[in-house]
Amino acid sequence: MAEKPKIAIYGLGACAGCDQAIIDLNEVMLQVADAVDIVLWPLAMDFKYSRIQAMQDGEIALSILSGSVRNADHQKMAELLRKKSKIVLAMGACACFGGVSGLANFCGKEDIFNWVYRNAPTVINPTGCFPQPETDLNGYKLTLPEFFEHVFTLDQVIDVDYYLPGCPPPPELIGNAIVATLAGDLPPKGSALAPRKALCDTCPRNLRKPNRMEIRSFRRIHEVEADPDECFLAAGIICLGPATRSGCGETCIRINVPCRGCFGPVPGVMESAPKFLSTLSSLLVVERDDEIKEAIDSIDDPVGYLYRFSQPSSILGQKIAKKGLEN
């Protein structure tokens, strides 16, 4: 019998939500497990890195990597799995665009360390000690992976073949992606394995969108009792649907929560935040400068909203990583 294709599933700077979404494949997962040989999946089974290191280059048919790259361990694992895999799939908003964890790029590493290990109200650290990459203890050398200055997307660190956006991606798209990869039925390299339309095109609330949308001030979703059928934007509630790829199954929209953009930009667009900013400004119907400023000031934390999933891949936020930690 021919050998089954090998699959690796690994979370880098991830919350394990993406792994959980794979588990949510339910019965389909059993079929997948029959058809493939899962060589690495720390969340679900025992594993040895040395086994992966001993493999031939390209021996793994597919590596599904979730999470951003924030420390040296993430980078080494990403580089190792890249070398051993034919196809690397960046899974989830963190791997694709930096994700929620990428918001950390709005503060420096020093600020983060100061808060987490010194200033947070629940921390007692009288000697002010911070984690170090190397510590000598009774003659032993203890090491920790280096914490980088910056959060990177997966493709800033290794070559990525395909992208599967979402936070996390829905099980249906995960199942399709695995089946398509194993069958070799794939679009051009670099594509996202998700629909191409914008969310507004598939949103049920679009039917109630007024012909001419006019926003005078902004409100947050918890401040109003949102009509479950009305377009959020038309009601002055920020919804990233116009600039976000569809494919999520409108899960947020259906529970009366506006889109926050976890599927990233539509094809051909580098970044959704600037597109959304342009859209939003054209919908604002206020005349004088002071009125414009007042309306804009009524948006709470615009940066956090617009860049919630995309800071590390944004025009102003992206940086190039130093490569080649593995070996």
Partner: peptide, 19 residues
């Protein structure tokens, strides 16, 4: 006028990137 509004919005975002 469209760009005037855009400029005000972008100004609100730039600061987070240190600009």
């Amino acid at each position: 006028y469209q760009t005037r509004k855009k400029v005000c919005l972008i100004q609100k975002v730039l600061g987070a990137f240190g600009i």
